[in-house]
Design a protein around this nucleic acid. Structure first.
Length: 377
DNA sequence: TCTGGGGTCCTAGGACCC
DNA sequence: TCTGGGGTCCTAGGACCC
């Protein structure tokens, strides 16, 4: 199950005056389109397209910034509906999930395709947004069928028909095969799903690396991964990036942005009682080349002082060219419980941790900008 | 047309150890 | 003087997804 133009649909559901109008959700003027309603797509607007381009194609569209709190709420309700029809539901993203309908004939006294219909119908009627579905014998085929069913459709791929229908699609419609892999495969004469299905695994491995084997299995419809209902294991990294309002070589400003980003990230770690042992700082230059430098601590930490010190060190190691910077980002990885020896051996460190917690509380109540951590701290 | 933000996973090379 | 093999960890970059 996959919602159609999810973010844009939620906006239209919340504001009826937007129904029937071209709605484009995007970040800023320097950003890209996150979601475009079907009314906007008629003008050629697509997600991932620069907002400036979308504005030229469809100047009459309503352009909105994202409202993630609303999207999360709609997402929660959408998954609740799915779970009413089957206990085995696997969320794949905010607007997309797998529902295992094995055995629903007995449970609902209706064949799976009828149940699928009911799910989509209930999403439409109770949330006011459209969703599409694909019904097939394995998750990948179901996902590909969903794509083919869009918008607002349901496609039932009976196992013996799956290959006939999916085989004709370009290899790029297989999830995990993007533009680069598609180009590589095409250079070897493999352009459709059927071609890939007929490829020997060693040959595919030579082209795609480790991924090749699995890609062939998926193309051939032999990839039967179960619908997983267990929650996903814990998050492996936290990152935050900011595209600046304009390209700059102002080092002081870049450092201030980097530190603010890092502070917000490390506060998230503290809130979850986690620490990171690797800090990565990266920039995108005005010419769109990216550069990053990272460093690992001896033990995972969530102390502002530790992380900010890393960031300060990394900035000058990363920015080596006299070129303006477009985007700044910080990533914290190698996440684990922070290990402290503080109370006994490092009283100063203990005090700093207490201070960080106090900072978090103030910012939680009064906003991030009410307190600033000075540069030398 | 002028290119986001937040994630996951993979690869390749080098350091280091036994 | 010229030279092993295997394993692990770290770093940098890149592909891909929504």
């Amino acid at each position: 199950v996959d919602a159609d133009a999810f973010f844009a649909s939620v906006e239209q559901a919340l504001r009826p005056e937007l129904k029937g109008r071209a709605v484009i959700v995007g970040g800023t003027e320097r950003g890209v389109v996150t979601a475009a309603s079907y009314e906007a797509r008629r003008f050629g607007v697509r997600s991932a397209m620069p907002v400036a381009h979308a504005r030229r194609l469809c100047p009459q569209a309503v352009f909105l910034g994202p409202n993630f709190a609303a999207y999360k709420e709609f997402s929660r309700r959408m998954f609740d509906i799915m779970r009413k029809y089957s206990p085995a539901v696997e969320p794949a993203s905010i607007d997309e999930g797998y529902v295992d309908l094995t055995g629903t004939l007995r449970l609902h006294r209706a064949p799976a395709w009828e149940v699928a219909h009911r799910i989509l119908h209930e999403i439409r009627s109770s949330l006011g947004i459209n969703a599409s579905g694909g019904l097939a014998g394995d998750k990948t085929a179901a996902k590909m069928a969903t794509g083919a069913a869009k918008p607002n459709g349901l496609l039932y791929l009976e196992p013996h028909k799956a290959m006939t229908l999916l085989g004709a699609l370009p290899v790029g419609s297989i999830p995990g095969i993007g533009k680069k892999a598609q180009d590589k495969l095409r250079r070897h004469g493999i352009s459709t799903v059927a071609h890939l299905a007929a490829t020997s695994r060693p040959f595919a491995r030579a082209i795609l690396g480790k991924w090749g084997d699995k890609a062939v299995e998926i193309a051939a419809g032999r990839n039967f991964r179960p619908v997983r209902i267990e929650p996903r294991e814990s998050q492996k990294s936290y990152s935050k990036q900011r595209t600046l309002a304009r390209d700059t070589i102002d080092y002081i400003y870049i450092r201030r942005v980097a530190r603010e980003i890092a502070e917000r990230l490390v506060a998230r770690l503290r809130a979850r009682d986690q620490g990171a042992s690797t800090v990565t700082f990266s920039v995108r230059y005005a010419d769109f080349t990216d550069k990053s430098r990272s460093v690992s601590l001896e033990a995972p930490s969530n102390a502002n002082a530790d992380i900010l010190e890393c960031v300060d060190d990394l900035i000058w190691k990363t920015i080596t060219r006299p070129t303006a910077i477009r985007k700044v980002s910080v990533k914290l990885s190698n996440i684990a419980r922070p290990t402290f020896q503080h109370d006994l051996f490092e009283p100063e460190r203990y005090l700093k941790c207490r201070r960080d917690r106090a900072l978090d509380e103030i910012r939680e109540r009064f906003g991030f900008d009410t307190v600033r951590v000075s540069g030398g701290a």
